[in-house]
């Protein structure tokens, strides 16, 4: 199955040159143990279940899905903030699934993460200069021209005034703080940035500033991104390839065009149709999903989406679909994939 998904993923990335992937994720799984009941019968939250994808150099992959779909857990495993329960993460040809110690520190230079909350992720007692310089100092790196010069360059890169070197985070607005977080992530010249909802805490007018900045950095520095977000429009704007997750599983992977214009998985269609669209006034013709996302402790049998799917048939509750290529070029895990453009 992994093989199939792998080749299929290859087909799905026709837009990128067939080089070695920078990041390869195979069968990634994360279970969190929980206790419940009188005597603490142990059960597990299946947060991420057998996820496979690749990110090529210079590529932006979007992970989308609703809360609890496992996208954030996946991101945290990529930067090794969480230990995978099973599966393999390969970065730049090296198996990093269980890398430890000095090697892990070296790895952290290459893979950086940007968090959602710019307020919580900056130490309020440190100056901006110190915050951005921290990754350099921790890794004992003295860039040519000195740390201060490099930090000021970075501040300029992210659109902040280099003279604000000595200011504290509270003196900046939300958008500027997120820029500080981005400057810090760039300090070590990473190859891959995992951005976990980097703009969802920002006001709309500020969101656009930060999205544009990330796009520009991606173009100028040739960075690869794993962009985690619940806002499908932002993801469409930033990512070339998109992976849709539901209840810990990957349900569809494809290019921007495949996912947004011609999605095969019913869930992808429902998700897109639920996004309120300014270009269409009034909320008509939406695909309506009933009820809530089921509990990841006791996921539905067969296809996990069958409880909310309008196309569900007997087969769906009996047999879990595997990721297979569709006529539109994307790969999806559905017994009865959709065809045709979305309206």
């Amino acid at each position: 199955m992994t093989d199939l998904a792998g080749t299929a993923a290859g087909t799905a990335t026709t837009t990128t040159p067939a080089r070695e992937p920078l990041l390869k994720v195979e069968g990634l799984t994360k279970h969190f143990p929980v206790r419940s009941g009188l005597w603490g019968k142990g059960s597990v939250v299946r947060a991420v279940e057998n996820v496979n994808f690749e990110v090529h150099p210079g590529e932006t992959l979007g992970l989308v899905g609703e809360s609890g779909c496992g996208k954030t857990t996946t991101g945290r495993m990529l930067v090794r903030l969480l230990e995978p329960t099973a599966g393999k993460i390969t970065f730049d040809g090296e198996d990093i699934t269980h890398t430890k110690g000095a090697r892990l520190r070296k790895l952290r230079q290459d893979i950086q993460i940007i968090f959602q909350d710019p307020y919580a992720s900056l130490n309020p007692r440190h100056t901006v200069g110190r915050i951005v310089a921290m990754p350099l100092q921790v890794n004992g790196i003295t860039p040519p021209g000195g740390v201060k010069r490099r930090v000021q360059e970075l501040l300029e890169t992210v659109g902040l005034n280099p003279e604000h070197y000595n200011r504290y985070p509270h003196e900046f607005s939300g958008g500027q703080r997120q820029r500080i977080g981005i400057a810090r992530a760039l300090a070590l010249k990473p190859k891959l940035i995992v951005a976990d909802e980097p703009v969802s805490a920002l006001d709309v007018s500020i969101q656009a500033q930060v999205v544009n900045l990330l796009r520009q950095l991606q173009r100028d520095l040739g960075l690869s991104f794993v962009f985690i977000a619940h806002d499908l429009a932002v993801v469409r704007h930033f990512c070339e390839r998109i992976a849709v997750m539901y209840l810990g599983r990957m349900v569809e992977v494809g290019t921007r065009q495949q996912i947004y214009e011609n999605p095969a998985h019913p869930y992808t269609r429902a998700l897109l149709s639920a996004v309120p669209d300014v270009t269409k006034l009034g909320g008509h013709g939406r695909i309506k999903l009933e009820g809530d996302v089921p509990s990841p402790i006791d996921p539905p049998s067969g296809c996990v989406f069958h409880t909310r799917c309008w196309k569900a048939q007997e087969k769906c509750s009996a047999e879990a679909p595997v990721l297979l290529p569709n006529p539109n070029g994307s790969i999806s895990a559905c017994h009865f994939p959709e065809t045709g453009e979305v309206v």
Partner: peptide, 11 residues
């Protein structure tokens, strides 16, 4: 309006 990304048009 111009700063909100859309599901349509040129991404």
């Amino acid at each position: 309006l111009a700063s909100v990304p859309s599901l349509h048009g040129d991404a």
